[in-house]
Design a protein around this nucleic acid. Sequence first.
DNA 1: GTATTAATAGAAATGGTTTCTATTTATATT
DNA 2: AATATAAATAGAAACCATTTCTATTAATAC
Lengths: 146, 146
Amino acid sequence: MLRDFQSVLKKLHLKVTPKRLAILEVLKNESVYLSPEEVWRKLRKQFSQVGLPTVYRNLEELAQGNVISKVTHPNRQLYYYFCLNPSHHHHFICLSCRTVEDIDFCMFRELEKRVKQELKGRVVSHILQVNGLCKKCLKKDGGSHA
Amino acid sequence: MLRDFQSVLKKLHLKVTPKRLAILEVLKNESVYLSPEEVWRKLRKQFSQVGLPTVYRNLEELAQGNVISKVTHPNRQLYYYFCLNPSHHHHFICLSCRTVEDIDFCMFRELEKRVKQELKGRVVSHILQVNGLCKKCLKKDGGSHA
DNA sequence: GTATTAATAGAAATGGTTTCTATTTATATT
DNA sequence: AATATAAATAGAAACCATTTCTATTAATAC
């Protein structure tokens, strides 16, 4: 669906540059979310000359365009991960291995109702981040994590 | 409940200092969440000598001790607000005036069930932040916000 | 009252992120 | 294919919220 990067970029009026494509490839091939610097380190294996600002700029543009998603980690660094699913959903993030999985679950209606009833307010958006331990990590170490 | 700051601090093994108390007073008297720097500016009205690092340190300690709560804003600055309610709940944040209201609502059980069933994982914690417009702001401007 | 330990001020360092400018590159047009 | 144009990039430098460091001060226990 979002696999055709060329057309995705064109829709967003972003030029199709080798580095832009490479960033998307890097994220596509990860089931784990990466920091901008981690993306940059992987990029440098292909391109000897690539600036960290370029990575930041691209990640931000792609996140704005909903091609990738952003996770805010407790330590205040921003991490990005690739997100093929364009429908509204939430993420389950493994605290141990950083794997990201989609949760086809959303309580927007419920929230909207209660905010309207109880607070007389209106919901515009919501952020739900579910932290936990994934299948693999539960098996591996029974769930020890920092 | 948490109004007796002295005993709250003692329970957390934090010394009862004038500035610590003043920080709590500042936050208690706000229904809006404040950035560390905003807290600092208010503190300086009482104390001519007070360092920003002191504010940061105290806010972090108090947040660790669950006396206050932290909100991460989209612009990546951390904001803090005072939170008297010690039970698990979530927050409704007005995008226009930054008012914070509690939502006595939690879908932990639901999440836990689905993550277990569908992903074979375990939920450790979750963050739910509900952004919207409060009663007052809806009246005032019909909901225009940045 | 004294000892002990935490808390603080102020300066300095840190480090992730952004800005700036000249240069390069993708794309539309011819 | 050649050219025009507007976007993208590298690299250096700036930014700025946050943290660290050290000497000093203040709160608490005894």
